[in-house]
Design a protein around this nucleic acid. Structure first.
Length: 420
DNA sequence: TCTGGGGTCCTAGGACCC
DNA sequence: TCTGGGGTCCTAGGACCC
């Protein structure tokens, strides 16, 4: 067992908003939000008014009338995020990046070169500030969980080192919501039994905890509350998404009538997004899931597992359409839909001969592939090739139908699906 | 004017097989 | 004939993370 605190968790502060303030000095010191319909990131000046990420733009403006909305410079986010992680790479190869703006690093093997972990963390912060112009907070601790919590406590623009001798004293006064795995629902359930701090969670009877939030989550949280975190750094996690288990796309629609004229073109567009990614990765999938959200934001899903994996746009679109018709038939009272989603899972490793060849006459539904399927495979390949040469916008499905509904720029979608 | 989009993991019930 | 148990797969839903 490690006895010294050598794990760093580095987290750029209010990342998208900080980049915008870096690019446009007139925005510095002012409350700004990246996004429009929904706030993707808020500067600390905006947070002082209660503006938060994920919040509807309208509500943010209510809270902060002088709030400035800025369009996202998504290429710059990627570039500056990469550059910040590279600073960590200068100290150790043991870097685990977990998102565009966040990474763990274990500096145990390089303290003889650069000094103690706290000093390394201070240098990283100075360099990111000096070379990139961005604030970054760092937590240093003996475990990943503790380092991550420490960086949250350090924000904004701070450094917190958790001495191994004082771990539980540090941890137990903090609110449970800082823990990995505690979101709004779990926080509320814990509050029902009077548990608000990590220390109170640690003292909760394990049986009661597991009944409250389930055995898996209960055991995990109990372990973390007692600072037992066995996770090691994963340096090469999910390279190129090779190990991905699913791929999906969704589109919020505002309020649209639940009729074929709306959902057919939308599903075609979504199927195209998903299927072209599956083809690009040579990862066809067997299970197709659709999600339909109604006017009151209640969502219903339907899925089907096919005998054969698919990656053809038309096949996916038709399967999804059937599932959506099933959802709507089961909810005849719902006349309005607010979101549609398609996801494909049970992805297969190899695309070897996944041409969706004709299998015979039986059960077309569970056995995708037919003469039509074969012809369409050729069409998909042609579309993929044109996009390779001329860009994604060169060929599209259902673009007109979706234009009005698009509240998030495609660049952000690209960013979200980008493998790190 | 009721909230984006990409994922992961867990749970629970039912079908089916041994 | 009746009863029980375990394992696996499928489906639907929920919670969480960035």
């Amino acid at each position: 067992m490690e006895t010294s605190a050598t794990i760093l968790h580095a987290d750029l502060d209010a990342f998208y908003a900080s980049v915008e303030q870096l690019l446009d000095p007139s925005l510095r010191g002012k409350p700004i939000a990246v996004g429009g319909g929904v706030v993707l990131a808020a500067s600390y000046e905006a947070r002082a008014f209660g503006v938060r990420g994920g919040m509807p733009g309208r509500k943010a403006r209510e809270l902060c009338p002088q709030l400035i909305f800025v369009g996202g410079h998504f290429g710059d986010y990627q570039r500056l995020g990469d550059a910040a992680i590279k600073v960590l790479d200068d100290f150790t190869p043991l870097v685990e990046r977990i998102s565009i703006d966040e990474a763990f690093a274990d500096v145990a093997g390089c303290t003889h070169l650069f000094g103690p972990p706290a000093e390394i963390a201070a240098i990283v912060r100075r360099r990111v500030r000096a070379e990139l112009g961005l604030p970054i907070s760092i937590g240093v601790a003996r475990t990943k969980h503790l380092a991550k919590i420490a960086s949250q406590v350090a924000k904004p623009d701070g450094l917190v080192v958790v001495d191994p001798a004082g771990e539980l004293a540090f941890l137990h006064d903090l609110p449970v919501s800082l823990m990995w795995g505690v979101g709004p629902a779990t926080k509320a359930r814990l509050a029902e039994i009077g548990v608000e701090t990590i220390g109170q969670l640690a003292k909760t009877h394990s049986g009661a905890l597991e009944r409250l939030i389930g055995p898996a989550a209960g055991q995990k949280l109990a372990a973390l509350a007692w600072n037992r975190d066995p996770r090691r750094l994963e340096t090469h996690r999910r390279a190129h998404s090779a190990g991905a288990h699913s791929a999906g796309a969704q589109s919020a629609l505002g309020r649209k009538p639940a009729v074929a004229d709306v959902f057919v073109p939308t599903l075609l567009h979504l199927a195209d997004r998903v299927a072209s990614r599956l083809r690009a990765k040579d990862r066809p999938g067997r299970t197709v899931t659709v999600r339909v959200r109604f006017a009151d934001l209640r969502a219903v899903s339907r899925s089907i597992t096919l005998d054969q994996a698919i990656s053809a746009t038309a096949m996916l679109a038709e399967t999804a359409e059937e599932l959506v018709r099933g959802v709507l038939a089961a909810h005849p009272g719902e006349k309005v839909i607010s979101l549609l989603a398609i996801s494909v899972s049970h992805l297969e490793e190899s695309a070897e001969l996944q041409l969706e060849l004709p299998l015979g006459l039986a059960d077309e539904r569970r056995r995708p592939g037919s003469k039509r399927g074969l012809a369409r495979f050729g069409a998909d390949r042609a579309v993929d090739k044109i996009r390779q040469r001329f860009g994604k916008q060169a060929v599209g499905y259902g673009a007109v139908a979706l234009e009005a509904a698009r509240s998030v720029p495609d660049e952000f979608r690209e960013l979200a699906e980008k493998e790190l």
